[in-house]
Design a binder for these strands. Structure first.
Lengths: 239, 239
DNA sequence: TTGCATTTAAGTGTATACACTGTATTCTCC
DNA sequence: GGAGAATACAGTGTATACACTTAAATGCAA
């Protein structure tokens, strides 16, 4: 490979799992979609070996599932699983609330407030991206690396389904209002209130999604939402 | 390798991560120990490729850490991390208590009671093994696969440190007494009491370990305990 | 046209081989 | 004998090649 610093360069090793993870999280790779090693390898400009490693890592995170036939697919969650994961998210985030209040500096609060304000008028897709960052940032403040990691994994797994809530169910404005309330609770150093808000935040979205799934009488289908943004992985990588 | 169905046979693929995970959990591979791909591959009778995949999967689980130099080691936890993980365990297990009480059949309770009774007179090592199974069994009853998985990961990570508590700090008899109380709470369908016991169970061990770490003024050192059982991976695989 | 057998293709699993990196070791020169 | 340079080594990263499995497609016979 003669030093092509340009576009077509091979993605460097640690980035492979990263790209796949982000593609799954953002719904570009829809649940259930087969992940063919050779295709991914070609799209990334590497051999299958590092791709396999990334797939195995993602499988350990739960984002990818290997079937009995050996083939890997983006993990598809049953409605009960989505329900369970939203509940788990509520538990973990509210657990971190006291630590977040304890360690957040005024500068941290100001930065978060700025982030939330900047989210006020975004469309569903852009808002969802920032929403993920906002919560990640909140977790970081708790200074609980393992709880934060576990929560991040859960957030990543439910993100495609979360986007359904935002896009189809118009959860965005309510969620955004709650974000503002969280900032105020944080500024007031009211950890009980922050915990309450975080619990409510997740459970409201959880219930809305569950009702939606029951109503449409079929598994929660993020694919319907993803389709709009669905491009091939190669396209995504080419960007 | 000419069809030696005997001892030295190659370990089949999915078993590689399994064997490593168990070896780490049981303290046979001590925290901080380098995991040399070629050595593991040779010990298992496979090439480095499947070993790499297993290591990456374990890294995604947090059991293995890749250094900046690329080398993998068994993850070593700082005392604060052990503290955090024991607290997380307490949170997750108590969260499952109501579901466990709800779904456990009399037969389940009887089986668990039998398991606990059988643990009454075991030595520290054998007791620790069964202890892990007991808690896993409890989690299984909750029928919350994702919470159960997360909890299992936490249990696995802290297991080497848990063995310190059992071996050095003589936690076994108190823990065992609590196990009996859990069975009674379960039989009485008292989920509040079960949750309380599970919380107490973890937090007592957590505090004991923390005090021990502070006392010995150095990182919690499971190696001291592991040394007794320390054999090479090859020895372990040969068994 | 349908049922079955045969072939083909698509995919995975993994062993081997080679390139690269950092470190330890040895050798040389002073 | 000691400091520095050159070498050897121990490891990792990954591309290639090949064996194996499964499922689809094709062709043949009834």
């Amino acid at each position: 490979m003669e030093a092509s610093i340009e576009s077509g360069r091979a993605v460097q090793r640690p980035a492979i799992a990263e790209v796949l993870r982000e593609s799954i999280r953002q719904g570009m790779l829809a649940p259930g979609q087969p992940l063919i090693q050779a295709s991914i390898a070609e799209a990334m400009g590497v051999s299958r070996i590092p791709v396999r490693e990334a797939l195995h890592a993602l499988a350990a995170e739960g984002l990818v599932t290997f079937g009995e036939d050996g083939g890997a697919r983006v993990t598809a969650l049953a409605p009960e699983e989505v329900d369970e994961l939203w509940t788990l998210r509520a538990l973990l985030e509210s657990h971190m609330a006291p630590a977040i209040v304890r360690t957040a500096t005024p500068a941290d609060v100001a930065a978060l407030r700025e982030l939330v304000v900047a989210m006020d008028d975004l469309d569903a897709t852009a808002w969802s991206d920032r929403n993920f960052s906002f919560h990640q940032e909140l977790h970081r403040l708790a200074e609980m690396p393992h709880v934060g990691d576990a929560t991040g994994r859960v957030l990543t797994m439910i993100e495609p389904y979360s986007r359904v809530a935002v896009t189809v169910l118009q959860e965005q404005s309510e969620a955004q209002a709650e974000h503002h309330q969280m900032i105020e609770a944080l500024a007031a150093e009211d950890s009980d209130e922050l915990a309450r808000l975080l619990l409510h935040h997740s459970h409201r979205a959880r219930k809305a999604l569950l009702a939606y799934a029951a109503e449409t009488a079929k598994p929660v289908d993020p694919q319907a939402v993803a389709t709009a943004a669905a491009r091939s992985l190669a396209d995504h990588l080419g960007a």
